[in-house]
Write a protein that binds this DNA or RNA. Structure first.
Length: 221
DNA sequence: AGGCCGATCCTCT
DNA sequence: GAGGATCGGCCTA
């Protein structure tokens, strides 16, 4: 297994603070047929209802429901939900237990098992820099590539050595992050809560968004 | 390169 | 009963 597990305290903080620091970390899935791993290169922060101003784009906006209950539990767990009847998206919970807040994973860079990810996505294995974006560039694409589903993975502890799904730190540091509005939402569409590795060819969205047109760069502390 | 559209179904009101 | 943190195909240019 590459790298080491992260401390719970890493995630027991505000999502907008955790999100940029999550860039460069590994998402590792131990499947029956082998290890799948990708480096996190694009994320979005979604804020819990205790915040002022509130975040109407967040699933936790109107308080706990059967679907979003995991968001109000302890930090460092997987929140996986289904969308548009066909896809899944994966988040990591933040904030101390009792408060909601999470980080949506929007893109990975394939690290281990790219050939199997391509098969999981129903793609032929091509070479070149364009392939990675099609493989794991997008919140539902990365779930498909790593075989992540709500029934199997929602609520899993990502910081437990025994867990099949983990977030790990292999020492790679991302010093700078691109900050832009979040993608694909109706409410609070102007807030700068999307964070991406600058100039990464794996990030999702239209090219203008991917390249960070009209965005800011911040140092990651 | 960008915009529109349909697929498809779960969740909450 | 409506709408959604998406994707891929097809259209225009």
């Amino acid at each position: 297994m590459p790298g080491k597990l992260l401390a719970r305290s890493f995630f027991e903080a505000r999502p907008e603070q955790v999100a940029p620091r999550l860039l460069g970390k590994l998402l590792v899935h131990r499947t029956p047929s082998g290890l799948l791993a990708g480096r996190i290169v694009e994320v979005e922060a979604y804020l819990g209802p205790h915040n002022t101003p509130p975040d109407p784009a967040a699933h936790s906006h109107r308080g706990p429901t059967p679907r979003n209950l995991v968001l109000f539990g302890p930090a460092g767990h997987a929140y996986v939900y289904s969308i548009y009847g066909r896809y899944f998206c994966m988040n990591i919970t933040c904030e101390p237990e009792g408060r909601a807040g999470c980080i949506l994973l929007r893109a990975l860079e394939p690290v281990v098992g790219a050939d199997r990810m391509a098969r999981n996505r129903g793609l032929k294995m091509e070479s070149g820099p364009c392939a990675a974006r099609e493989l794991t560039g997008g919140p539902s694409r990365l779930c498909q590539a790593l075989r992540l589903t709500r029934p199997e993975h929602n609520g899993l502890d990502l910081l437990d050595a025994a867990s099949l799904l983990q977030v790990r730190d292999d020492g790679v540091r991302v010093s700078e992050a691109l900050v832009t509005p979040r993608i694909g939402i109706r409410h609070a569409a102007e807030r700068l809560l999307r964070f991406a590795v600058p100039d990464c060819h794996c990030v999702s969205g239209p090219k203008s968004v991917a390249k960070g047109f009209r965005s800011a760069r911040v140092l990651v502390c």
